[in-house]
Amino acid sequence: MSVLEIRGLHVSVNTENGSVEILKGVDLTIKSGETHAIMGPNGSGKSTLAYSIAGHPKYTITSGSVTLDGADVLDMTVDERAKAGLFLAMQYPVEVPGVSVSNFLRTAATALRGEAPKLRTWVAEVKGAMEALNMDPAFATRNVNEGFSGGEKKRHEIMQLELLKPKMAILDETDSGLDVDALRIVSEGVNRAKVNNDLGVLLITHYTRILKYIKPDFVHVFANGKIVEEGGPDLADKLEANGYADYVSK
């Protein structure tokens, strides 16, 4: 049983016009097995929250804390956060020219498991993960995210989620750019990871449609750098009907 605790998180970015505060005090607690949906309009700071937890160098934490099972996440390097059990499925996964998917996955698995996975079981593991997400085997020989379609990038992120077995996953708009079939396949991958690894999920989304496939236990409305309303799954239905207008105008 793991707990990710975010307390009073304030985050700024440096711009040409000096430092701008994006997150204005975020409080959130996620436990193993729980799924929390964070919903909010574009520009409200959802990705900033995701990146700040993962440790992207662009963001400066000005106050607050993030802990995983009591350990200070903000004090860790990016790779240490992953080793502690955090995973970020990115809204815009990054291309790494010349590095094949198979090489990348094996390097990551080696880093996270502390030893190189046995070649034979590893090959079967990757093959299984790819089949489960309806991915062409040739995918493994392609360069990381290079020339991938939007859907392929998202499948690749979820394949990593399944292979790398984190404790807590932040999924940043994993649903955007997916057609209905791909959305279902990707959602099933997330649900498998939840069942198999008792995964805690922070599901960031702009739309409610992914919530039909991945059932949230809690829904948080995010606007202007903080959580402005919280509730159960029914809050998503309300957002579906009314949109974010109520929150943005405040």
């Binding site: 992207h56 990054v94 790494v96 590095v99 880093a111 360069n143």
Partner: peptide
């Protein structure tokens, strides 16, 4: 690129090596 690789547990040193090899 380095952030993406490191977010998967790869150390800065190994991430650099991967990027240069790539």
């Amino acid at each position: 690129q380095l952030f993406y690789l490191m977010s998967r547990g790869i150390t800065l040193e190994d991430a650099r090596r991967l990027v240069v090899r790539g």
